[in-house]
Amino acid sequence: MSGRPSFADAPLSALPPDPAFLRRTTGGVTIQLRVQPRARRTALECTAQGALKAAVTAPPEDGKANDAVVALLAQAWRLPKSTMAIVRGGTAREKTVGVSGEPDALVERIVEWMGKHG
């Protein structure tokens, strides 16, 4: 035991609700976010309403913005880019990103990021 509290050790009633932009699936999670291509700087933030916004400097051409979004999420959440894919909204600003892995571990990592940056 590492001494750090874990969501796995908590009773179900004590678990915080999942973020509004996140959905658990059998093979991981899906993330809904709004993307701003050609932004002045690259940033990932959670709005006061609980939405996830990604700003990337890449243009929305030839999948460059999508690749930048995947790279941004992978860096922020310390996950391999190979676990992520745009599953909906490839040419739209509103996107759904699938992240494969163990859902509980992914949610814990994303909620931890939100605690530090949200």
Score class of each variant (00 low, 15 high):
57 T>L: 11
68 A>Q: 15
57 T>M: 15
71 A>F: 02
56 V>M: 04
74 A>R: 00
75 Q>G: 13
59 P>M: 08
53 K>F: 08
47 T>P: 00
45 E>D: 15
71 A>E: 05
73 L>E: 00
59 P>D: 11
51 A>V: 00
74 A>P: 08
70 V>D: 04
57 T>Y: 09
73 L>M: 05
68 A>D: 15
58 A>V: 10
63 G>S: 03
70 V>R: 07
70 V>F: 00
46 C>T: 06
53 K>N: 11
74 A>M: 03
67 D>F: 05
71 A>Y: 02
61 E>D: 01
51 A>N: 06
58 A>C: 13
71 A>L: 02
75 Q>K: 10
58 A>E: 15
68 A>P: 07
71 A>G: 14
73 L>V: 07
58 A>T: 14
46 C>M: 09
72 L>T: 15
64 K>M: 07
45 E>M: 06
50 G>T: 08
52 L>N: 06
47 T>G: 00
58 A>Q: 13
55 A>F: 07
67 D>C: 07
58 A>W: 14
69 V>K: 10
45 E>Q: 13
74 A>D: 05
45 E>Y: 12
50 G>E: 07
63 G>Q: 09
64 K>F: 06
69 V>S: 11
65 A>F: 04
74 A>E: 03
75 Q>R: 10
63 G>H: 08
55 A>D: 12
70 V>T: 07
65 A>Q: 03
52 L>P: 11
60 P>L: 03
50 G>K: 05
75 Q>E: 13
46 C>H: 04
54 A>Q: 13
50 G>Y: 07
50 G>D: 09
61 E>M: 01
64 K>N: 08
65 A>H: 09
59 P>W: 12
62 D>I: 01
68 A>F: 08
69 V>P: 09
63 G>D: 01
57 T>G: 13
74 A>T: 06
64 K>E: 14
53 K>C: 08
58 A>G: 11
46 C>R: 14
67 D>M: 04
55 A>Q: 14
73 L>W: 09
57 T>E: 15
69 V>A: 12
59 P>R: 09
64 K>Y: 04
59 P>K: 01
59 P>A: 05
73 L>T: 12
61 E>N: 02
54 A>H: 12
49 Q>L: 06
52 L>C: 02
49 Q>D: 15
49 Q>C: 01
52 L>E: 09
60 P>Q: 09
48 A>R: 08
72 L>Q: 12
56 V>T: 10
52 L>Y: 08
58 A>D: 13
50 G>R: 11
57 T>W: 13
53 K>D: 13
64 K>I: 01
72 L>I: 05
65 A>N: 10
67 D>G: 15
49 Q>V: 03
56 V>K: 01
62 D>C: 06
70 V>C: 07
62 D>Y: 11
47 T>W: 03
46 C>A: 06
73 L>N: 08
53 K>G: 07
50 G>C: 05
56 V>W: 03
47 T>N: 06
48 A>D: 10
59 P>Y: 07
51 A>D: 14
51 A>K: 05
62 D>V: 02
61 E>S: 00
72 L>C: 15
